[in-house]
Simulated scan of single mutants.
Amino acid sequence: LRTERGTGTNILGFIVMLVLMQGVALAALYPEDRMLKTFRRILVSPVHVGKYLFVQFIFTFLCLYIPTYLAIVITHVLFHAEIGFHLDILAGLLCVLTVLATAFAIFMASVMNRNISLMTSGISVITCVLSGCFISFAPHHPLLNVLCAILPQKAYMTFIHGVEMGHSMREYKAQVVYILMWSAVFCFLGGFITRRRTNKGIYE
């Protein structure tokens, strides 16, 4: 791959951080339900924790994906802005990112009760900088280099850069699977924490 970045990689690099932060903002209904005791009343019905979180996941995903994709498409069509990807390819790339952002939002909303957006903003900015979402970042410190390689945003940037350079999306199955694994872990931990707190009566 060429070392220089294309327009599409730069655009999606900035969008990574925005989507991560916006996902938590959209998932604010979940902690709000807990605070207003609505969550407890929902669990009295046949709806269990898993179903509730699944619905929250779908709602957050759709509210993230549709406006983000439409905003880029409208900018491209009406203002003829170069986005670096075909619209169908962009749809797939955004889908992978939105799944990660939604899972991260569910996890953070499950772990924290307040100041969620503040904490998430800090985490998103730091991890996106270390992952090279804004500029290419190659740390010389071995420990920092390992940490950066672990971050799912790093795999995503490798994925979109390769696709923009003309490679097939199939060639980056490893990166996609890695991102989806992070998403699955976030969802699992979010559900596990919520169930454990529910069983302890914390949300009573």
Rank of each mutant, 00 (worst) to 15 (best):
S136E: 15
S183W: 02
Q22L: 11
M165P: 00
G92S: 05
V55P: 03
H167N: 08
Y52T: 10
K200Y: 11
P46L: 03
G13I: 05
G6F: 03
I123E: 01
C187N: 06
A174G: 06
F137I: 08
H48I: 10
Y172G: 06
V19A: 03
A91D: 09
C128I: 05
Y69W: 11
A105G: 01
S124I: 00
L36R: 11
F85W: 07
Y172I: 03
S136D: 15
H76E: 12
V49W: 03
L147R: 05
G122F: 08
F137G: 01
F85Y: 15
A28E: 15
V146A: 13
C63D: 07
T7F: 11
I126H: 04
S124L: 00
T98Y: 04
K51T: 09
P46A: 02
F59G: 08
S131M: 06
I202T: 10
Y69F: 15
G201N: 11
V163W: 01
I150G: 01
L97T: 02
S131Y: 06
N199K: 15
T194M: 04
S117C: 13
T158P: 00
C148M: 08
G13P: 08
E82A: 14
G23L: 04
L147E: 07
L1A: 14
G6V: 09
Y65R: 02
V177T: 14
N113C: 09
V176N: 02
E4G: 10
L18F: 06
F134I: 05
F159G: 05
H80W: 13
I83G: 12
V111M: 04
